[in-house]
Amino acid sequence: MSFFLQFMIDVLSLGGAYALMALGLVIVYGILRLVNFAYGELIMVAGYTMYLTSGSGLPWLVMAAVAVLMAIMAGIATDYIAFRPVRAKSVTAVLITSFAFSTLLQNAALLFISPRPRNVPLPEIFSETVQFAGVITPARNLITIATAVVMLGLFSWLMRHTVLGIAMRAAATNFTMARMLGVPANLIISSAFAISGLLAGVVSMLWIGRVGAVVPGVGLEPLLIAFIATVIGGMRSLQGAVLGGFLLAFMDITLNFTLPQDLLKFRDAFTFSLVILILLWRPQGLIRGPASGQRT
């Protein structure tokens, strides 16, 4: 029983983080058909903001809020620098600019900060453990679960009950029609990038909180995770991205328990082969996105 509970906590906390990562990627892809390679760097930006403000003596929550804000700004910057100027050109051009912007941010961190890991401040509670019902677990895991629940709730509320959210969902199926109803394209695009940045910022606090340090390449793993999760869940479905995140976490943790050590190191090869197979078998993912697949 306690094993089961332990397993559930592991899956839910990892899955919560994965789900938020995937959601941040898919909100941009769903509306703009842009695979944003610079997404991982939004997580990096939040991490370095924590490092840079660590000497300020501000309470942790304030620093975290600033870091999330910086991630949002970086998200909006992605729109202005990498997306908007080439938006009308080709799909390939947009992909390449986002890849270039990702490299740009990473190397800016290398150049202006350091290639070596930098410590970020963590609140006490991140390193504590909690014991209940016969299970000992880091408090961090429970915080991750709680944060994921709050963020997913907030996100769902935003998408269902605000005009902006409804307009974004509409734009995901048919951008032109949404514009013909008066929804400004630029507002939708910037909002998508801003929300992506918000999710990346929050994920960053949880993700970097596991190791307590940030390096320029910190964004790669979350980006890869988000990729897999969104492919599993369907590239265009918001619910699918969340489900994909949890499924991937379930798979990862199950593999951790069951796979022999010398195969475990190939885990990424397995999961990414799975990605390729899913895309071949069901290009729209396990969960279908919005019904009419009109492109913008």
Binding site: V163, I166, A167, R169, A170, T173, N174, M177, A291
Partner: peptide
């Protein structure tokens, strides 16, 4: 907008 409810369509 097929995924939006009738009401949400009107609201937009």
């Amino acid at each position: 907008f097929p995924d939006l409810t009738v009401d949400e369509n009107l609201q937009l």
